[in-house]
Design a protein around this nucleic acid. Sequence first.
RNA 1: UCCUGGGUAGCUCAGCCGGCAGAGCGGGUGGCUGUUAACCACUUGGUCGGGGGUUCGAAUCCCUCCCCAGGAGCCA
Length: 462
Amino acid sequence: MERSLIKDVLAEQRFGEPSRVCGWVRTKRESKGFVFLALSDGSSQDTLQIIVFPEAPAFRELHRCNTGAAICAKGILRESPAKGQSIELEATDIVVVGEVDQATYPLQKKGHSLEFLREIGHLRPRTNTFGAVFRLRNILAAGVHDFFQARGFLWVHTPIITSSDCEGAGDLFTVTTLDLRNVPKKDSGEVDFSGDFFGTRAYLTVSGQLEAEFLALSLGRVYTFGPTFRAENSNTTRHLSEFWMIEPEMAFADLDDDITLAEEFFRFLCREVLEKGHRELSFLESHYKKISCDELRKLAETPFVRMTYTDAVRELRAANERFEFPVSWGSDLQSEHERYLTDKVVNGPLVITDYPKEIKAFYMKQNPDGKTVAAMDVLVPKVGEIIGGSQREDRLDVLAQRMSEVGISIENLRWYLDLRRFGTVPHAGFGLGFERLVQFVTGMANIRDVIPCPRAPRAIRL
RNA sequence: UCCUGGGUAGCUCAGCCGGCAGAGCGGGUGGCUGUUAACCACUUGGUCGGGGGUUCGAAUCCCUCCCCAGGAGCCA
């Protein structure tokens, strides 16, 4: 008999029909006259209840059907007479596929702390919580593609290994095949990469934006969705060394178009997750109380509040609030400032625009005032910055001038300047940290709990 | 990297102004005619993070290293 997914069995409610399901036992509850199993196969948040009576051949296998065991159960679907579920499988036959030694199996029926589950990353997807998180992550990932594909954006694949080290001054991972026991050095004492695999120093990418720009300036509308890497020694609940980023880039677009895109994108994903991940959201809401479906529904409907950096500074200086760090025009907003604005002033997502050029990247378009750039950050309550974007500087002379001001080699980025030399066009885009989005939607407090194998300083166990 | 709090049974934690290593949960065994992270009874379980020091005696006090969590910086 063909195997059914528990998701379908629960949805279709085919009482009286035969069925065969396979999965892992969550709990076993034994009485004298019958035994209940709760079975999960990962296809849904809900388990399927299996009942076994002593007369059934399956009964003889029950001593091996402990928490965590992999089994296939065959029987007839019945209407459940008790509260808690409407359908259950009355099993006639059970095949134990993989047994579990109860004494050493780390997952028990009772809940575990997220910290403990982080130590057993290969088993934590079997829990309610991580099953919910990873199913929601999938809904969001699929939603990203649905959103952009429906709007004529091309998914482009920018490189993971790159020679470009100039996007911000962030720390990069070096990729090398040099013999680490005998590293060649120049006379100056610096490492000589000329004999390395690529003949020059190579890195793991920190962003696909620069490459996405040349693709947008030929294909029109593109987006990247792939892994990026930061070697920063950040130990926080919001940072990973390896994370997935989404970076759309649009030709013939300005900052306003960029913000509109970001807003529609974010709200679309809220709707997707409400529609397709309702059971998962409800579970997380009831167990962690960090996110609510009502909240997401509201977000899916209300427009973002827009505020210039200058206005934000004015708002913060007028605030009747003691900040640890002073607020002054020209310095970047601190976490506490952002949190005050999102949680107390607007109580929802906020877009801050037109930052001072000194605190933003060299490629952002300078505004007519000569002091600010056409940049935008989307801040959401609890998580903070989730999207950072800008209109790009499309004037050759202004861009070249800015690059020399901040000390970026024009020689290495000749190709990037070519885009302004040959058929330049106003264009804009943004970057969204996928894990922060998953974090926001699931309400998980630590970003390490929304990716299967989190990478962070001194953390690469699994 | 900095600040703060932690590390004791498989898990969650109590014990910490020095004096016999504890509880709940889990695991095991038995019971129970519709259970829902079932329930009841009995039972099992320890390198007190590692190393060093003080002391008659250290889970407890001191030094040091490692690890974990939260906050900060950096950012997405």
